[in-house]
C-alpha cells in the first residue's frame, strides 16, 4: 500500500530523514514512534506529497507519490496534529465544506458525527468544543471520506485517558473496515495496543522495526521474574526451569502478592537503542 525506499530529506543543511525504508501492507496499523523532532511529521508530509524529498522514492497505491491524481488523493485521509477546524462554524457546517469538496452526500455528515460521538454537538460551533471533541471532529472529517489510507499524526496528543480510549476504539473500527492506518505517536502504550508493526525513529533514522511484542521479546536480555511478597520483600529469580520449584513453593505458601515476567516495554527498548526517553521529550513539548 505504501512503500518508501531510502528516503533522505534535509532542511538548511541539517539531515532530517536519512535512508528511510517502509513497506506498509494493506489493512495494517503501522506506528511510527519517536520523540518530538525525530522526523515523524516530515515523513508523513513526504508520503502524502505535501513535501518534496532529496533522494529515494515513495509509492502509494503502487504509484509514485508525485503521480497521484486527485482521485487517488481523495482516498487518503490525513489528520495532522496542527490541522485546524473552522471555529465559528458548527460541526455540521465544518463537515459540509468537505462533503461538498469531495462530492459526498450530506447524509454522510450525520453518520460521521455519530461515529465519533458528536451527533449531539452537531450544531455547536467548533470554538465551543473541548480539545477531545475537536480531535473527534477532525477524525469525523477524515472518516466521512471513507479513505483507504489514513494518516494520523499524534491523534491523541494531550487528550485525557477516556477520550484517548475512545479514539483508539475508532481507529480499531476503521482497521476492521479494511483501512490501512499510518499512525505517529510518542505514546508507547498506544503503539503497543494499536499497531501491527512499529518503526522506532530517532534523529531521522529507523533504529528498529517489527511487531511491538516481537521487539520487546527481542530485547529481553534480563529474562527474570520479579515477585513482590506479602511481607513487602521483592525478589528476582531467573526466568527458567531452575526457578520453577521456588516459585511454586512461594505460591503454595500464599506468600506472593504480585508476580511479573520482565520483558522490556517499547519505551525501555527505545531508551536502550537511543539513550533517549520518548515521554520526557513529549512532556517538554507541552511544558
Amino acid at each position: 500500500m505504501i512503500r518508501a525506499n531510502a528516503i533522505c530529506k534535509s532542511f538548511a543543511g541539517k539531515q532530517v530523514l536519512s535512508g528511510i525504508d517502509l513497506d506498509i501492507k494493506p489493512g495494517m496499523i503501522f506506528g511510527l514512534l519517536g520523540p518530538s523532532g525525530a522526523g515523524k511529521t516530515t515523513l508523513i508530509k513526504i508520503i502524502t506529497g505535501q513535501l518534496g524529498f532529496d533522494s529515494g522514492d515513495v509509492t502509494v497505491f503502487g504509484k509514485n507519490v508525485s503521480d497521484l491524481t486527485g482521485t487517488d488523493k481523495k482516498q487518503i485521509g490525513i489528520m495532522m496534529d496542527d490541522h485546524g477546524v473552522y471555529d465559528r462554524l458548527s460541526c455540521t457546517d465544518n463537515l459540509k465544506i468537505f462533503a461538498d469538496i469531495y462530492g459526498i452526500p450530506h447524509s454522510k455528515i450525520i453518520s460521521a458525527l455519530e461515529e465519533v460521538g458528536l451527533k449531539d454537538a452537531a450544531k455547536k460551533p467548533a470554538m465551543k468544543l473541548s480539545k477531545g471533541m475537536r480531535a473527534r471532529l477532525q477524525l469525523a472529517r477524515v472518516f466521512m471520506v471513507s479513505p483507504k489510507i489514513l494518516f494520523l499524526d499524534e491523534p491523541t496528543s494531550g487528550l485525557d485517558p477516556m477520550t484517548m480510549k475512545y479514539i483508539h476504539k475508532l481507529i480499531q473500527n476503521r482497521k476492521a473496515a479494511g483501512c490501512t492506518i499510518f499512525l505517529t505517536t510518542h505514546n508507547m502504550e498506544e503503539a503497543t495496543e494499536l499497531c501491527d508493526e512499529v518503526a522506532l525513529l530517532n534523529d531521522g533514522k529507523i533504529v528498529d522495526r517489527g511487531n511491538p511484542s516481537e521487539i520487546c521479546r527481542r530485547y529481553n536480555h534480563r529474562k527474570a521474574i520479579s515477585i513482590h511478597l506479602k511481607t513487602g520483600e521483592d525478589i528476582r529469580l531467573p526466568d527458567g526451569i531452575e526457578s520453577a520449584d521456588k516459585i511454586s513453593s512461594l505460591l503454595k505458601q500464599g506468600k506472593v502478592e504480585t508476580i511479573h515476567s520482565s520483558e522490556p516495554t517499547l519505551e525501555t527498548v527505545f531508551i536502550e537503542l537511543t539513550g533517549r526517553k520518548l515521554e520526557n521529550d513529549a512532556e517538554a513539548r507541552y511544558a
Binding site: 505535501q50 488523493k73 481523495k74 469538496i101 469531495y102
Partner: peptide, 13 residues
C-alpha cells in the same frame, strides 16, 4: 494562522 487552509489544500482544493 489556524491551519484550515492547509486542510483545504490537502482536500485537493
Amino acid at each position: 494562522e489556524k491551519n484550515t487552509l492547509r486542510v483545504l489544500m490537502m482536500a485537493n482544493v
